[in-house]
Amino acid sequence: MGNTLIILRREFSSFFATPVAYVFIAIFLSLSAVFTFSFGSLYERGQADLLPFFNFHPWLYLFLVPAMAMRSWSEERKSGSIELLMTLPISVWQAMLGKFLAAWLVLGLALALTFPLWLTVNYLGNPDNGIILAAYLGSWLMSGAFLAIGMCMSALSKSQVIAFILAVVVCFLFVLSGSGLILNAFNDVLPVLVLDTLASFSFLSHFDAMAKGVIALNDVGYFVLVALVWLYAGRLVIEHKKAE
């Protein structure tokens, strides 16, 4: 645990030593504002909640989180520091977890910095703040699943561009598998059971409930499980091809 914490600290400060964290947070904040007010019509709906804000999160994360995760291992490979890291007395899992948690904290920070939106709806009306808090937690959990996919893809390649593209593609599949677009397309072809299974793998269907403030154990469990599985896959990748 100690080593994980040390890696976490190093990675976290590295996000702020380079412009990565600042750029990420700035873009995240401005995009979420644009989405919420222009496309989500926060004002026009006349309801004091943040549903329009949270509904866009899967699509925001789809591009922003892979951009954040892409450097985590690719950079280590490229600069050769992976050889240093992997010959220090730490396990691959500690390194993986430390890197993940650091980036996840930055994501959490970005989310927390959207608090002016929360202030706005509280000023304008009388929202259910429990629901909003639950949705924030759900969104942060989901970002962790995106992040784990991104880190696994970053472990695969020393090129950040390749890592980014792979991560976006995989994340896209996870998001899309539950969207109406896919489900309608296969409506006539596939049996309901298969469609339901497909939809149950989707980030969208699990996030939907959480965005409305319902924290169900199976949704939480789903995102935690997805994150762990992808982190574990990333660990295997690193272990088997760390020198390539």
Partner: peptide, 12 residues
């Protein structure tokens, strides 16, 4: 261990 080329974390 000093790896070849002495890699380190450049941003630190």
């Amino acid at each position: 261990y000093l790896p070849e080329g002495a890699p380190a974390y450049n941003d630190m």
